[in-house]
Design a protein around this nucleic acid. Sequence first.
DNA 1: GCCGTTTTCGGCCCGACTGTTTTCAGTCG
Length: 573
Amino acid sequence: MNNSEVSKVFEKIAGLLELKGESVFTIRAYQRAARTIEHLPTELAQMIKEEKDLRQIPGIGEAISSKIKEMVTTGQLEYLENLKGEFPDGILALMDVPGIGPKTALRISTEMGISTVDALEEAIVEGRLATMPRLGEKTAENILRHIRSLRTKDQRIPIGRALGVAEQVISALKRACPGIHQMDAAGSLRRWQETIGDVDIMGTSDDPAGVIDSFVGLSMVEEVLVHGPTKASVVVHGGLQVDLRMVDDDSYGALIQYFTGSQQHNIRLREFANRMGLSLNEYGITDVKTGRVEKFTDEGSFYTRLGLQFIPPELREGLWEVDMATRQELPSLVEVKDIKGDLHCHTNESDGRDQLESMVNAARAKGYEYVAITDHSAGRGIANGLSEERLKQHMQNIWDLDRSLSDIKILTGSEVDIRSDGSLDYTDEILAQLDIVVASVHSAMGQEREKMTDRIVMAMHNPHVDIIGHLTTRLLGERDPVDVDVEAVFKTAVETGTALEINASPERLDLKDIHVMRARELGVPLIISTDAHATEHLDSMRFGVAVARRGWCRSADILNTRPVGEFLSFLRR
DNA sequence: GCCGTTTTCGGCCCGACTGTTTTCAGTCG
């Protein structure tokens, strides 16, 4: 069982314990464990293999630790099976509908004999649900709406799209309303989580009501859900929900802290504050004894008041960040401005849109010291991959351009296919002539775990391979990751000195955050590249940097923060 | 069920909204 499966089991247990009327603190303990495990960088199975004490993980004690061991070693959990037996089938599915909690689910199930969402929908349409005591028309209607929206819209959307929407909204409002003082996206977007449920925007202004009015009137707005004087919710084209909340300047710090979350981070922070005799909410910090409330115009002073180092939003997942901030031990995270070069770019010689010169000029405009041109190898026929002949000519063109420019070093490279048997798409002679070789999987993605792992490990043992591109080949919301033993790949990377790419394309984000965290722990060389297929894609670097930050990377953990000379000596090592 | 700069026992984040209600339970984030 992998971590996400274990996490889901604990979610289920929490749900069933709610139905059972178990202590809310027990329920909360399981929920917390589930969320923590979801964000854990290391596979629990790996930790057990290495005989690590699972109780080192925050929120995991004796009972949960032994349940994890049972699951990982036997593939099931007796406790869950027994618990399930106490309730009708399907009841957890009912609880997945927003608006239906344990109490309602139990009543629907026992009093009406309904155990599926479909049957529930039918009952509502026929008016049967509304006849139950304490469940009126409005409740029934509300549940129906949620059932239907669960079916019609994607739950979470990739961050690339959500960020685009948020930036459009913010810039449109700033243009329309000169009285805006501050305005930022909060929530999972500000934490740069890879998928986003809805967009939360906070702001302050001379004329909050005017800003709200402009917001609901934006051309991209399809439906207005709520429209009050300080808060509004809308649905924009594509079905994404956007909330805007306007507050007073002196509340802004506490508010954006609160709405940035995560919920788990806020809980940790509030527990910590409680031990200091302070109580936190979205309006400020209250001294419990005196009842005096302190307000904060910015988030930095909020954390400072608690005696904490500022915690970057990307770290706010409720793991160790609060503890480390108390000791001022949070790392200084890598930033976009630290990046000195992009190492994965395509031109129109293979499947890119723009010419070599354009791509290089775009990289120069970024102030990069180096850029690698890595068009596809021949095996990618569909991507207009380069034969050895064409590659040689392409290299010549790159050398010529490189000689004519003094402010940037252009590296000759290739994104070479790792074939299904682990061999590479170019001969070693050709690879040896390139400055940089990115090796990636583009085919036979359905291979079973062992074969896929061997295939990639074999490529890493080729001395010409510098970087493994987009390790899992996933496309967010479109294509699942391949099944690969990530731990084995990381160990090989350390042995062979092969770097792993954090592919910054917002469709990929591959490695993902928790993989980056684990890779960094193990000392895997990491680089961040955009995989640009057009000049504007070079802007995606910020997504890759965000993933690296979510993996707790400092600039020293990322190879392409090194100046050109140092980077070239890494390549020639 | 977890956890500790008061505690190995006795606490556990905090507030808002909604609906069917005469004071609140249920749900959500």
